[in-house]
Design a protein around this nucleic acid. Structure first.
Lengths: 340, 340
DNA sequence: TTGAAAGCGCTAACAT
DNA sequence: ATGTTAGCGCTTTCAA
């Protein structure tokens, strides 16, 4: 029935050698004479032989596959991160299994278990739920090297993260230098490292500058569209409306800009805007938006190196923590604070 | 050394049955008595047994994995498509290997070969190079069911595609009904089905409406940023500048809007704009942009169903072709053509 | 219905 | 340096 796929035995037979030698040639072992190598290679070519990944994987206990779990590839930042990772790993002979956690703990647990079951050689994850016990337990059960991507998780794994506090400080100081005193912050309402740290940086910087922290200027939303529009519009209609806004992401930033536009304010004349996270949206908006850019590609480089290192030198050195800075990309959305 | 992972033999031993029965229970075979089933399940729970994916895969010749190759997940449309596919397949017990072709033929070939080597159960691909002989050959060598995603490729595979011609017609007729006669089109310069069809629809519709086809209104760029800006700005400064523009994607659309803004024209008062492809960018721009929306999620639903069908009922029915319509989402970027 | 046993294709340990 | 062989963990005949 089935044309019976060709195996390493066929290669060995045609080459007139043993399967052992054939295997050695295939895996580039050093101890093979040129003659044997040539014969095996000829046989491989003649038969169009390709090793079975499943068999290799079963026998050698590695899958040459990396598991990746991000909350949502649709998020441009994760998209870029994945693309960069995929490039690095593919060069190294690994493929990537990508799963979207979608901030659903059950889903995340299920994905993590599947990664374990499928014997991923390494894992890069950014779980949406850093505090969920089930998720944490699922992570702890993982037996392969792990890189945690911008999360605060207490676990023996390598961490890569962004310096949100410092980024926020840079943005605020830039605005304060332009004379702004009332600076609003619009964020996702989430129990996430990014949000936590950004608020932390926001409060700390204002405090250090001797400005008061006005709760009405800190808006957290749980849906990126209409609530943002409403709340921000409301804030902009206050007599003591802010003269600058920092907003995160694409959707929240977009809705914030809508609110500004609806309130008949102009950027940057009436109000300055900084995006936390640089995307196509920020680049192409009119006016182009000043934004904090994260070095996603460098992080991916670093993360893939660390993980590959762990995988290859099986030794388990100390866990690593590396933090990457944001850069403030100045475009046209910030101006001096308007005089009352 | 290694804690020797628990295998089906351990389960069978603890349950006091044969490995055969254990296997039957694991795979939900019908011919098992409740007693045996219970014993095996108890043993599985007690040992925390998880079947080895590699062994299952080797023995049963399926990997429960789908290969996905898109040009770039960073493109929001592919991002959405992947997310939708991943959700459907994960529910069905499959995981997705995602690789970005990056429009590089060598890379695409290499990815396709790897998919074959790794014995993917099915494949969904949108190669960047529809005409590249090497890529075509690599596709033809694939032995598993294939779904081709919005490409014109002569091959025995299921095709899902978007009706770009009809979408273009809808956009143009909408603009013509608003009185526009000179309507520009800004596109990526690529040998791709999408671009080809869109131009086809553009020409056909103008022709049918009795309008002349003005070559200066059709701009194709090979880089999404500065060239667009220049060429579109130049076009807008002509005495016979268009009163409406259709632009594709996020980046080209963004640059086009920049050009409009730089030329001191307002949307929609001076010029109407339609985006070909609906994204966060279009939704959140000021004003929100009228755009052609593709039913990415429906397509993913359909594609996953077709592929799963092929995989499960191994029978090879006729190849399928399904075309999905664009919807024109009316927002605030189109208005009546300005009177001279 | 159940158990025994043959291998899926490969690598690695061991013997030569 | 090469060949032989045992098994990785599982599914699936085949017999009972």
């Amino acid at each position: 029935m089935r044309p019976k796929q060709i195996s390493i035995r066929d290669v060995a037979a045609l080459a007139g050698t043993s399967v052992g030698s054939a295997s050695r040639v295939i895996n580039g072992a050093p101890n093979v004479t040129p003659e044997i190598r040539a014969k095996v290679e000829r046989a491989i070519a003649a038969l169009q032989y390709r090793p079975s990944h499943a068999a290799q994987s079963l026998r050698s206990r590695n899958s040459k596959t990396i598991g990746c779990m991000f909350s949502d590839v649709t998020n441009p930042l994760y998209g870029r991160a994945f693309r960069a990772l995929e490039q690095r790993f593919f060069e190294a002979g690994y493929m990537l299994l990508l799963a979207n956690g979608l901030n659903d703990p059950e889903r995340e647990i299920s994905i993590l278990n599947t990664f374990q079951l499928r014997n991923m050689d390494g894992i890069i994850i950014a779980p949406g739920n850093e505090r969920h016990l089930g998720v944490l337990e699922a992570i702890r059960k993982l037996t392969m090297p792990i890189v945690i991507y911008d999360r605060d998780i207490e676990i023996d794994a390598d961490l890569v993260q962004y310096d949100h506090v410092e980024g926020m400080r840079a943005a605020l100081e830039y605005l304060m230098a332009l004379g702004h005193r009332r600076i609003a912050l619009v964020l996702w309402k989430a129990e996430s490292r990014a949000v936590r740290r950004r608020i932390e940086g926001y409060n700390a910087t204002l405090l250090a500058a001797g400005l008061q922290i006005a709760p009405e200027l800190l808006i957290q939303v749980d849906s990126p569209t209409s609530p943002v529009l409403n709340e921000v519009t409301q804030m902009l209609n206050r007599p003591d409306a802010p003269t600058a806004i920092i907003a995160q992401g694409t959707q929240i930033l977009g809705s914030t800009l809508r609110a500004i536009s609806v309130s008949n304010k102009r950027v940057p004349e009436d109000i300055s805007v900084i995006g936390f996270g640089d995307t196509d949206f920020a680049t192409h908006y009119s006016p182009p938006l000043t934004a904090l850019r994260s070095p996603v590609e460098s992080v991916a480089d670093y993360a893939s190196n660390v993980l590959l290192g762990r995988i290859q030198n099986k030794q388990s050195g100390e866990s690593t923590l590396k933090t990457f800075p944001y850069t403030l990309v100045e475009r046209d959305s910030c101006g001096p604070a308007p005089q009352k």
